[in-house]
């Protein structure tokens, strides 16, 4: 795929690594970039330190995954060597952050902005902590407040990562746009769901419930991106179950400007980025269209009786 300009920054292609997948250190982020990912996202950084939940935390169901890792983080101010390693990077970086309160979001955002990532993504959508994340992503006023507060203290474009748990995700996206968000990233994991082992007679995940990802949630993700596209004019990073070039095409048609992948790494390895780039380019060539031309294309079609 050809390079794209996103919020004024040059990306080598329109593919994004979802937060929470691999992004634990500079070395692996660079490797994912080399493997064909246009924009890599760090694992969500919080005020921390925080260990996250005990295992089992991540289970592959075959048609997608369920996870409740629980937002582990060294804490933004315990990552000196990581920030140092990232300062010499040769790839664009999206820094995902979270907090348990508006004040914590601001505290983390201010510090992280000074480390010079290309973008900051606020995770207001994680279902795997009782105190963090999703609380802010299901309420328009809370979403506006946190977006607005973070926007004021950072010097880089702001991306709001949303949850499909919102009753009307378009309204949440609109609130984020009104508050100054430069882009929307959707969706975070769906559910939460639960799997119970009938022999053990208890939930498999230590946190009991967990977010769903991968192919099983793609229709939910496509619907969310479709709704958001109708509600806002800022660009959208569409993700949720994308595993192939055709999945990416579907996401672009729903209205995404960039397309993210996470669980796809489980099914096709880190090489999935190069593979999807090729598949996407082939599809566009075969159909004599460009990526720009298919963004939001599904919105222009009318069903005829």
């Amino acid at each position: 795929m050809e390079s794209v300009t996103f919020l004024g920054k040059q990306l080598k292609n329109p593919l994004v690594l979802a937060s929470g997948i691999l992004g634990n250190n500079a070395g692996i982020l660079e490797r994912v970039h080399r493997a064909g990912c246009g924009l890599v996202t760090m694992k969500s950084i919080g005020p921390g330190p925080r260990d996250g939940h005990n295992n089992p935390t991540v289970i592959d169901l075959g048609f997608g995954m369920i996870n409740a890792v629980g937002l582990p983080t060294p804490g933004y101010d315990h990552m000196d060597t990581e920030w140092q390693a990232l300062s010499g990077r040769t790839f664009p970086l999206n820094a995902s952050i979270y907090g348990g309160s508006l004040e914590e979001f601001v505290q983390v955002a201010r510090f992280v902005s000074e480390q010079g990532p290309e973008f900051i993504e606020i995770n207001i959508s994680c279902p795997n902590s009782d105190r963090h994340g999703m609380l802010f992503g299901v309420d328009e006023k809370a979403a506006f407040a946190v977006t607005n507060a973070v926007k004021r203290v950072i010097a880089v474009p702001l991306i709001a990562k949303l949850t499909p748990a919102a009753p009307d995700i378009g309204k949440i996206a609109r609130a984020c746009e009104d508050a100054g968000a430069d882009a929307i990233c959707a969706i975070n994991t769906a559910g939460p769901g639960m799997i119970i082992d009938i022999e053990a007679q208890m939930p498999v995940l230590a946190f009991k419930k967990g977010g769903l990802s991968g192919p099983m949630i793609k229709p939910v993700a496509v619907r969310c991106v479709y709704d958001i596209y109708r509600a806002v004019s800022i660009p959208i990073i569409g993700l949720g179950g994308v595993t192939t070039g055709e999945d990416a095409v579907e996401m672009f048609m729903a209205g995404a400007t960039l397309v993210g992948m996470g669980s796809a790494v489980r099914y096709r390895g880190i090489e999935v980025f190069d593979q999807v780039n090729r598949e996407l380019a082939d599809w566009l060539t075969d159909h004599h269209v460009t990526r720009d031309e298919i963004i939001g294309a599904a919105h222009d079609r009318r069903h005829t009786p």
Partner: peptide, 20 residues
């Protein structure tokens, strides 16, 4: 380790993923 199959990143050692 957490997932065991190369997605969560808990076990990264440099740019290598120890579990996969």
């Amino acid at each position: 380790m957490r997932c065991g199959f190369g997605v969560c990143g808990a076990c990264v050692c440099g740019d290598r993923v120890v579990c996969t």
